[in-house]
């Protein structure tokens, strides 16, 4: 398994405000797989993603990515891990407002010795003509494409996407999903996608349902629907 999560527990607060968000979750994702994590609000899907991304520590259990145990890593090692392995895409893009599209992408290019070709990526993502614009001068879809480009420029082995289409209309959502699909095919990038959207599960290899901090269901799609054919996005 490329991503191997075993019996991970995570809680917040103390006393009356104590909440156990992950109650011994175990999942595995193979290299090159696209995986959707679905669940209702508060089910723990974003927490699981953050734990895998090294943004949050776990109370117990094990979380390995490409054989590297994330749990217990020191902050600088976690930085190295994120730097070398991960790409992030968020619902609200999290672009640096005072940097242009090209410069936002460069933020991550700076972190790797072997980046993808910037112009090719801009071209692929349809951002070429917007390269010198600031995020505030772009539409939501363009901003999310920029966020994707930023995540992809360092050719990450694992792409973590937290509600990547959550702030987008259905057409733009579809465009973004087509793009993610292409990337997965082209670069073999492993992807973990947290989403509320029920249709997205149809395009990925693996689907995990979380409910109240536990795995309610997980399965592998026998027949994947291409992103362009997804309905009700």
């Amino acid at each position: 398994m490329y991503v191997e999560v075993s019996n991970v527990k995570k809680s917040y607060g103390e006393g009356g405000s104590y909440v156990e968000v992950l109650k011994g979750v175990s999942v595995g994702v193979e290299r090159g797989e696209m995986c959707v994590i679905q669940g209702t609000s508060g089910s723990g899907k974003s927490t699981l993603l953050n734990c895998i991304g090294g943004l949050d520590d776990i109370d117990s259990g094990s979380c390995k990515v490409d054989g590297l145990e994330i749990a217990g890593l020191k902050k600088d090692k976690l930085s190295d891990y994120r730097r070398d392995t991960l790409g992030f895409i968020f619902q609200f893009y999290n672009l640096v407002p005072n940097l242009t599209v090209r410069e936002n992408i460069e933020v991550c290019r700076y972190l790797t010795k072997d980046p993808l070709d910037m112009d090719e990526l801009l071209d692929t993502l349809g951002l070429k003509e917007h390269a010198d614009k600031f995020p505030s001068q772009l539409s939501g879809g363009q901003q999310q494409r920029t966020a994707i480009a930023r995540a992809l420029i360092k050719n990450p082995k694992l792409l973590l996407c937290d509600e990547p289409t959550g702030a987008l209309d259905s057409k733009t959502s579809r465009d973004i999903l087509i793009l993610l699909e292409k990337i997965n095919e082209k670069y073999g990038t492993t992807m973990l996608i947290v989403t509320h959207n029920n249709s997205i599960k149809n395009m990925v290899h693996r689907v995990i349902f979380l409910k109240d901090g536990e795995i309610a269901k997980q399965y592998t799609n026998e027949k994947r629907v291409p992103a362009r054919e997804l309905e009700d996005l």
């Binding site: 991304g53 943004l55 600088d76 930085s79 190295d80 891990y81 994120r82 730097r83 070398d84 991960l86 992030f88 999290n94 672009l95 640096v96 407002p97 005072n98 933020v107 991550c108 972190l111 930023r150």
Partner: peptide, 15 residues
């Protein structure tokens, strides 16, 4: 003013 960006680049792996 840049708190958000700083947080983000931390996520991305900047030291």
């Amino acid at each position: 003013k840049n708190e958000h960006s700083i947080s983000m680049v931390k996520i991305l792996g900047f030291l």
